[in-house]
């Protein structure tokens, strides 16, 4: 285990840990803006809405004679249905409160995803264990290319967050004023959701889709207890996320039975509880 923590468990495990750290940083940073915009749970619907896409992509790739587990293909499918889920939430919000729209989309898409998984299992084309990694995350046995994809995706999200930090903060603080200043709040919200979606897609193999919301939200709310500025909150959240991602992947490499997602989530929760106790629940300032 010590070897995994200090990057000596082989180059592949080291790469996976670094990838998970970058993913954690991206999730923490994006999550900071997401929670400040008060839309934490929409990301949960988004994450669950990836499942039907993953199933359909798996079926399509297997039908074409390829490997159903080909990660980029799965990510395209996941992105497609996640975008559809996001659109469905927006369509429902015209008639229902946002929380109800979120819950309805989450359960429907997830339910259909489960149906797709049973199709795959029944057709006998996928090893039953093949897709379960996307539910709870499995970094053990991850391919080198997958780890690189995760690292690059995390870095790209971090860069985009840095570029958009001012308009994102302005829309989260005062959407009306942002609009007066020529920023389109709806477009900024869409950009934020796209970044969250990128985190979800990249995180599928690390934390799994059920728990990715924790990697977005928990570091952010822990950081919020210490920091009095948006930049400080997002920065610290990214740092906490990176630490939890790195440590979680390393631990999971030492104990391959443990699904990676729950380990990372519990690490982040520990940071949150510690922050809550030390800060007495008070925000900075």
């Amino acid at each position: 285990m010590w070897q995994a923590l200090t990057l000596q468990a082989g180059p592949n495990a080291a790469l996976v840990s670094l990838g998970a750290a970058l993913l954690g940083a991206a999730a923490g940073g994006a999550g900071a803006f997401l929670t400040l915009r008060r839309r934490a749970l929409v990301s949960d619907a988004l994450a669950h809405a990836t499942l039907p896409g993953i199933g359909l992509a798996f079926l399509a790739m297997a039908a074409l004679g390829g490997d159903g587990r080909f990660l980029p293909g799965l990510m395209v499918g996941a992105a497609a249905t996640a975008a559809l889920g996001l659109w469905a939430v927006q369509a429902l919000v015209r008639h229902l409160p946002e929380d109800a729209a979120t819950a309805a989309v989450l359960s429907t898409f997830y339910g259909f995803g489960i149906v797709m998984l049973t199709v795959i299992q029944s057709l006998g084309i996928g090893r039953p264990a093949g897709l379960e990694g996307v539910l709870l995350g499995a970094t053990a046995g991850m391919l080198r290319a997958e780890a690189v994809t995760i690292a690059l995706g995390g870095a790209a999200v971090l860069l985009a967050l840095w570029v958009l930090r001012r308009p994102l903060a302005m829309v989260a603080f005062d959407p009306l004023h942002a609009r007066m200043m020529g920023i389109n709040p709806a477009r900024m919200d869409l950009a934020l959701m796209m970044l969250v979606m990128a985190v979800v897609l990249v995180g599928l193999n690390v934390t799994g889709l059920i728990l990715i919301v924790a990697l977005l939200v928990t570091p952010a709310v822990a950081a919020r207890l210490w920091m009095g500025t948006v930049a400080g909150t997002a920065g610290l959240a990214a740092l906490i996320g990176a630490g939890c991602g790195y440590l979680g992947a390393a631990l999971s490499a030492s104990f391959p039975d443990l699904p990676t997602g729950p380990v990372i989530v519990l690490l982040a929760a520990a940071v949150f509880v510690l922050s809550l106790l030390l800060r007495g629940g008070r925000h900075y300032g």
Partner: peptide, 25 residues
Amino acid sequence: ARMEPGAAMAVVFTTMFAGGVLLLE
């Protein structure tokens, strides 16, 4: 923590679910 209820919910349920999975394993 004067937090949005949705965020508090996300923190609590993911933590407990993760704990359950880990206990199982």
